[in-house]
C-alpha cells in the first residue's frame, strides 16, 4: 500500500515539476524584477514572448511526437511570410493572400515529406537540408536578402488585423494561438491521426505491421508541421508589415526547447500539447523577467539554458524514481 502511494506521489512530482518551476520563476521575478507583475507587462509577455513561439512549438511537438524533428519550421514561417507579402503587393485580396501564405509554408512541409517519407532520409538531416536550401532560396528571391516592405500607405486595415487587431478586447495573435493550441491538443491526444503519429514515433515498425500506412502518416505529419508554422508567418508579417528573409529561424531553438521541456509533463515522457504550452510560458516568463531585471542579453541565454537543464533533469530523475518504485 505504502509503496503504491509513494510511487503515485513521485509520478505526481515528475508531472508537476514543470508547473512548480513555472510558479517558482514567476514568484522570483514578481519579487525581484520591477514592473514584472503589472498588467501591461504580463500582457506583453503573452503577446510578445508567448503567442508566436507557442504556435511554432506546437508545430514542433507534432514532429517530435512522430519520432522526428523539424529544423525547417523557421523556413515555413519565412515562406508563408514571403508568399503573403508578395500576394498583397500584387493586389490580391487579403483573404486569398493569407491562404496563399499558408500554402507557401505548407510547400516546405511537402518538400520535407518527400525527403523523409518518400526517400527515407532521417528527419534531422532532411529538415537541416531544407533549412539551408530555404535560406538560399530566400536570398535568391530577394536579391541577396533584402527585406520586402509593404508601403505604409498601401497597407489595408484588414492586413494589420492579424497582428494588431483585437476581438472583445483580446489581441488577435493570442486568440489565434488559443485556437491552434486547442486544435492541436484535440488532434494529438484525441484523434486517430494523433494516436498513430505517437505510435509511429515510439515504435514505427509496429505501426507498419499493424496495417497502417506509415509513410502516409509521416508525410502528413510534416506537412501539418509546416502549415502550423505558416500561421506564424502570417501574424508576424501582419504585425511588422515587412518580410525579412530567414527571420523565422529565431524561433527554432526555443521551439525545440519548449517541446522537450514539455515532455516532462507527461507521465511517460511523451511530447504533449499542454506540456509544450507550459514550456513556452516558462521560456517567455524567464526571458521577460531577466530583461526587466536588467541582465544583459547574453546572461538571459545562460539563464534559459540552465532552466532547460534543470527542468529536464528533475523530470527525468523523477520518472526514473517512479519506474523503480
Amino acid at each position: 500500500m505504502a509503496t503504491t502511494a509513494l510511487s503515485s506521489f513521485t509520478r505526481g512530482v515528475a508531472r508537476y515539476a514543470l508547473v512548480a518551476a513555472l510558479a517558482a520563476v514567476f514568484a522570483l521575478f514578481a519579487a525581484l524584477a520591477p514592473g514584472f507583475l503589472s498588467g501591461a507587462n504580463l500582457l506583453s509577455v503573452l503577446v510578445n514572448n508567448f503567442a508566436l513561439l507557442a504556435i511554432v512549438a506546437i508545430a514542433m511537438t507534432f514532429a517530435v511526437s512522430a519520432g522526428g524533428i523539424d529544423l525547417s519550421v523557421g523556413t515555413a514561417v519565412d515562406f508563408a511570410s514571403f508568399a503573403f507579402v508578395s500576394l498583397v503587393l500584387a493586389g490580391q485580396p487579403i483573404a486569398l493572400a493569407a491562404l496563399g501564405g499558408l500554402a507557401g509554408g505548407a510547400l516546405v512541409g511537402v518538400f520535407n515529406a518527400v525527403l523523409i517519407a518518400g526517400i527515407g532520409i532521417s528527419p534531422f538531416l532532411a529538415t537541416l537540408g531544407t533549412l539551408f536550401v530555404g535560406r538560399s532560396a530566400q536570398q535568391l528571391l530577394t536579391n541577396g536578402g533584402n527585406p520586402v516592405y509593404l508601403p505604409p500607405a498601401g497597407v489595408p486595415e484588414a492586413f494589420r488585423f492579424l497582428g494588431h487587431g483585437t476581438v472583445a478586447g483580446i489581441p488577435v495573435p493570442l486568440l489565434v494561438t488559443a485556437l491552434v493550441v486547442a486544435g492541436a491538443w484535440l488532434v494529438l491526444s484525441h484523434t486517430r491521426f494523433g494516436r498513430v503519429t505517437l505510435a509511429a514515433g515510439i515504435q514505427a515498425s509496429v505501426v507498419r505491421y499493424s496495417g497502417l500506412r506509415l509513410s502516409r502518416i509521416t508525410a502528413l505529419t510534416y506537412v501539418l508541421v509546416s502549415t502550423i508554422a505558416a500561421v506564424v508567418g502570417l501574424i508576424l508579417t501582419s504585425t511588422v508589415t515587412v518580410y525579412i528573409p530567414s527571420s523565422g529561424n529565431a524561433f527554432l531553438l526555443n521551439a525545440i526547447g519548449a517541446t522537450f521541456i514539455g515532455t516532462t509533463f507527461d507521465p511517460h515522457g511523451r511530447p504533449n500539447v499542454p506540456g509544450t504550452v507550459l514550456g513556452v510560458l516558462l521560456l517567455g516568463v524567464v526571458a521577460n523577467g531577466l530583461l526587466l531585471s536588467g541582465l544583459n542579453f547574453y546572461w538571459q541565454q545562460v539563464g534559459t539554458g540552465l532552466l532547460i537543464f534543470s527542468v529536464l533533469a528533475i523530470g527525468f530523475a523523477n520518472r526514473k524514481a517512479a519506474a523503480r518504485a
Binding site: 486517430r192 515504435q203 509496429v206 499493424s210
Partner: peptide
C-alpha cells in the same frame, strides 16, 4: 518486441492500434 507490440505504449493503445477506426 520490435514488430508485434509497442513496448512504450499502453495495453489499450496497443490493443486498439489496428482498429482505431472502430472507436473514432
Amino acid at each position: 518486441r520490435r514488430d508485434g507490440v509497442a513496448l512504450d505504449l499502453s495495453v489499450t493503445e496497443n490493443t486498439t492500434l489496428a482498429s482505431l477506426g472502430r472507436f473514432s
